[in-house]
Design a protein around this nucleic acid. Structure first.
Length: 598
DNA sequence: AATAGCTGCAGGGTTACGTC
DNA sequence: GACGTAACCCTGCAGCTATT
């Protein structure tokens, strides 16, 4: 057993590079490694078997009319095996470049422009195919599964939105689209539609998002063509029969050609100069797309072959890189919030919610907000427009005219602002907008449905606390289920989260006892609040959250005590320290502003 | 080490809606 | 009204990270 204890012990280099040189791909021997069979996903299998048909056709076209037979295939595999030996089973997972290289002189293929692959122009032969000849199944699947260029910041929310829009405008059902194009169950698609995802954190569903992304990139002609096809008809039979068949050989070959591209030569450096940085660099090279099943399968094989323990491997390498892999999730979450700007750039269909979201969009933290400059520019804009200050104040900023006059008159330090920070955020965003968007927004009545909650923030309506002893289930139900015409779900959920943090109420307790929902459900609603107008049956939980925030703290404590909360006494003493509901609300607003700032 | 919180995934249950 | 289907909501589980 070789020691793997430290990176400094350069033995491991023999495993990452040298050791691998001795390994042959089992695909191209007659004894096929059984483990490898499991490394192909269903869709990959599908692609491969379809590729077989494709290759046959291409052989006919480019191979002087001679049919491929087992000998031809063997030649292909031998050639490939040579390559494999040369590159020594270090498999690269990025693209199809190698396939193209390999195809020169081996498998003649209609020219697939791999260089264009990264330009996100749907690989062109397929476009042509739609006009000149019918799209083949393998072309269709390749189009669908084409990797998304790494420089693209995949916004799953936007993809979902656009797919929904497309489905809405088409005559096809979600179910048909799910099964015939995405190769998933309809319920799964429903979940994908309902639950926001961070693309980089996805595992199995990443493939679905890739397909949806590519779908949106296609022309309507190609889509129509594809919808007529039965892309996944061979899905299940393949599971059983592939072992000894010719098809299986093709599968193996094509899998490697397509999914395991030419390894970029990682030149082995002198082991003595292996540094943490070098390791980091090697381990964290960006990857645009991979077959995760294949990678994990290969890793398992490698672990077995090199007798590396999972524990050692996990702790020494993967554990460190794992943290890094988690990083992108935040940035892509941020992209959700920046999205409305894009939507609003075509103001024709702007909704009140979009407008408000545009206005209240947090100012990026790197921006040094100059309030004087904002005031100056807003004044200039008002001067040049036909709108009065009062109109602008009430219709865009949702403040009173005299408040705006004060803001104009008194210099402010943005970071010290509390309630007025929101106004400056709105003014900042206003200045960032195009005149078209502004015009559109000025025509709207943004605050007509302003919720009582927000009014209460200004002058909280005192909810008279009844005698705690009289708190009953009926009273609670009455308080919690008061009808609500409109609310800013984002604000409510944000307030609730702050309140929970402040009172140290757990999600589990609150969800079970107050909301009457599972913790999971509450967490989803808190973290991914839907816009009020998008909600249908799901409004109930938001109504309860809203009404919860609407109550006085004493009322909340009474209810919590009613449900037997253990820490109500502590919370109560905490509450007693605060002076009034007014202060609580002010504090919440301040924290909310802080939140926005960050 | 224990606990809390978050998330992907999958599936059950309910509601909405269209068709007969 | 009965029925089937689509869409939506809710939840459990498992695995992960962060915090205490």
């Amino acid at each position: 057993m070789i020691s793997y204890k430290k990176f400094d012990d350069q033995q491991p280099a023999d495993y990452t590079l040298t050791e691998l040189t001795t390994v042959q791909y089992p695909f191209f021997t007659h004894g096929i490694h059984p483990m490898r069979q499991e490394s192909i996903t269903c869709s990959e299998r599908k692609m491969l078997i379809e590729e077989k048909k494709f290759e046959t056709r291409r052989q006919m076209k480019y191979g002087s009319g001679h049919h491929p037979n087992s000998k031809t295939l063997l030649n292909v595999s031998n050639t490939y095996e040579t390559e494999i030996n040369r590159f020594q089973r270090i498999v690269d997972y990025e693209s199809e470049k190698w396939a193209e290289n390999m195809n020169q002189g081996i498998i003649k293929e209609p020219k697939v422009s791999t260089s264009d692959q990264y330009l996100r122009k749907p690989s062109l032969p397929l476009l042509n195919a739609s006009s000149t000849s019918p799209l083949t199944v393998e072309q269709a699947i390749r189009l669908l599964t084409q990797p998304i260029p790494s420089q693209i910041n995949v916004n799953t929310t936007e993809i979902v939105k656009e797919i929904k829009e497309w489905l809405g405008s088409s005559s096809y059902t979600n179910k048909f689209f799910a099964s015939n194009i995405l190769n998933i169950k309809e319920k799964n698609l429903t979940n994908i539609f309902a639950q926001k995802r961070d693309f980089n954190s996805l595992r199995n569903t990443k493939e679905t998002f890739i397909k949806m992304y590519n779908w949106l990139e296609m022309s309507e002609d190609i889509r129509t063509e594809m919808l007529k096809m039965d892309l996944y008809e061979y899905e299940s039979p393949l599971q059983d029969e592939n072992d000894k068949s010719l098809g299986f050989l093709m599968i193996r070959m094509y899998n490697t050609l397509i999914f395991s591209e030419h390894p970029k030569k990682i030149i082995r450096q002198d082991p003595a100069i292996m540094t943490a940085e070098r390791i980091d660099e090697l381990m964290n090279q960006p990857v645009a797309y991979m077959s995760t099943k294949k990678v994990t399968s290969d890793i398992k094989e490698w672990l077995a072959r090199t007798r590396t323990t999972r524990k050692w491997f996990a702790e020494s390498k993967e554990s460190t890189s794992r943290q890094n892999l988690r990083q992108p999730s935040q940035s892509s979450m941020d992209s959700f919030t920046s999205l409305p700007l894009c939507i609003a750039s075509s103001p024709s269909s702007m909704t009140v919610e979009q407008a408000i979201r545009l206005l209240t969009q947090p100012i990026p933290s790197q921006i040094n907000v100059n309030t004087s400059e904002i005031v100056k520019e807003i004044k200039e804009w008002l001067g040049s427009s036909s709108y009065t200050n009062k109109y602008f104040a009430s219709n865009i900023l949702n403040i009173k005219g005299n408040h705006l006059t004060n803001i104009f008159a008194q210099p402010r330090d943005f970071n010290s602002l509390r309630n007025t920070k929101e106004t400056f955020v709105k003014m900042y965003n206003w200045l960032e907008m195009s005149e078209d968007v502004r015009t559109e927004m000025l025509k709207m009545n943004l605050y007509e449905y302003e919720s009582p909650l927000q009014d209460e923030n200004e002058t909280p309506k005192k909810i008279i606390r009844q005698n705690p002893a009289t708190m009953t289930a009926e009273r609670i139900s009455e308080l919690m289920n008061q009808p609500v015409a409109y609310m800013s779900t984002k604000k409510v959920t944000s307030d609730i989260k702050m309140w929970m943090a402040k009172t140290r109420t757990t999600r589990k307790w609150f969800a079970t006892n107050i909301m009457g929902r599972a913790k999971r459900t509450l967490v989803i609603n808190l973290n991914y609040p839907k816009e009020w107008n998008e909600l249908t049956r799901g409004k109930e939980i938001y109504v309860r959250l809203y009404n919860w925030m609407r109550m006085s703290e004493e009322e909340r404590q009474d209810i919590m005590r009613f449900y037997g909360a253990e820490n109500v006494e502590e919370q109560e003493s905490e509450v007693e320290e605060s002076k009034s509901l007014d202060d609580i609300l002010k504090e919440l607003r301040r924290q909310f502003s802080e939140c926005n700032k960050q």
